[in-house]
Design a protein around this nucleic acid. Structure first.
Lengths: 245, 245
DNA sequence: GCAAAAGTGTTGGAAATACACCCATGT
DNA sequence: ACATGGGTGTATTTCCAACACTTTTGC
């Protein structure tokens, strides 16, 4: 105990030492990159802009910026989304942190990826700076920096999360038909689903409210419209125990 | 298009500008904290040490340190684990990044949490500096910094991951009885499982090899010992599509 | 009336659950 | 002999997957 005590003392650091290490020695830049998914024309989309960086001018990039020293990490993500795309009222979720020393040509910059799902109709882009616009996810390649890796991982994460939580609804208008919902899942997961089983499943979850309206102006029999009932979901959501791999 | 082009030019940054921002303006410390889980005496454990920091001397903390400017983030995690606990040959997985401005009293330090599962018998701690030792997970409270939050989230993540992937095996000796395996799952998930159904499930997965040995020195009928067969798992693991929330 | 998508049930198989008795070993 | 946990099987239920025809609307 005495020896462990002396080791403890040997290694002890004061706040001043830490502060000096951070300010004078450990110059690591910290940035946030946002991967914003949307859904339109039955396709999953992602929001990209032209890179700010001279070197990458011709390449597309995620929406990112350096974190300010007095800014919470989450706050930085929201600020960046607001600044880069004028988007507000959007729920962001942290995905992963990328920290290879050589990932940024301008020096050591570690980046934290955030992702979000938004309804393209409800969140009109308020700026088009840097040629900001929506791209089909399957046409994304060769992004600036390591953004392709970030994008790939975010998409993977989305595919998993969307199966575990009712995130998909935030990509749709608040009133939607079951066909739209199914198209969404098929697009995100790149699979085909059986229509009858899909309906059965969704109805049995009892998270949809039939609002007694139908589609308009479709060149075929109109479908019924539903709303997602968040409260019902909260009450019913399953606890998850059991081994399953 | 012309206006978007001019906006593009207005905002453009050279590498030099970025470098200067990182070095002169954005002083954000970056650290890694490791949450190391182990299993012993039928209890889930976590490795803690006394905080390095004067201010937190009386509190327990995770194993952490600042990331060096020329060190990959993952490498930093492995280095810290080696340095703090003498542990090698351990698989680390990134969990989450914590970035509140006020989380560290020594200034702005953002930390990336990593977690790991190790077999306490096979990885004897090679140092006891800072009173490093194993704590029962349910007796953990009031850690230094925001380490309790980090710990809680890591445990949550572990509980989830362990149901989706055969991670649990790395907490056990390479030869183990089904009872030990079941105890492990019960400890991690804090639930009771039916013994017969548990066996049935595991056998039907065909990921265990019967090595034709039995337990020794137990005060009751000895159980058979098994090994985890990673190759079989790789061949059989399920792809996962379907909605399930 | 025709094209296009909406809406609807049943069945068989697989997997999960619940549950109770005998067996092998150490003391 | 007894205490302790090891080992085993069956019946029931629940969930999932596969599958085809009729209905409603716009044109």
């Amino acid at each position: 105990m005495q020896s462990s005590r002396s080791m403890l003392l040997k290694n002890i650091k004061t706040l001043k030492v830490i502060r000096s290490e951070v300010e004078n020695i450990n110059h690591i830049g910290l940035s946030v990159d946002c991967v914003i998914f949307g859904f339109d024309e039955n396709k999953l989309k992602v929001l990209l802009m032209r890179s700010d960086l001279e070197k990458f001018q011709c390449k597309w990039s995620l929406l990112g910026d350096l974190v300010k020293p007095d800014e919470d990490l989450d706050a930085a993500a929201y600020r960046i989304l607001k600044q880069r795309a004028g988007l507000d009222d959007v729920y962001l979720e942290q995905v992963y942190t990328f920290g290879k020393t050589n990932r940024h040509p301008g020096g050591r910059v570690v980046t934290v990826a955030y992702c979000s799902l938004i309804n393209i109709q409800h969140h009109k882009l308020k700026t088009l700076a840097n040629e900001l616009h929506w791209h089909d996810v399957d046409s994304v390649n060769d992004l600036a920096f390591d953004h392709k890796r970030i994008f790939d991982l975010s998409l993977q994460r989305l595919q998993k999360r969307v199966q575990e939580h009712p995130l998909g609804f935030s990509l749709l208008p608040s009133k939607f038909s079951l066909r739209e919902l199914q198209n969404l899942y098929e697009a995100i997961l790149s699979i085909k689903l059986d229509r009858r089983n899909f309906r059965k499943k969704l109805f049995s979850m009892e998270i949809l409210t039939d609002i007694d309206e139908i589609e308009k102006n479709v060149p075929h029999r109109p479908g019924k419209l539903y709303k997602f009932d968040y409260d019902k979901y909260e009450r019913k959501k399953k606890k998850w125990t059991g081994i399953d791999f």
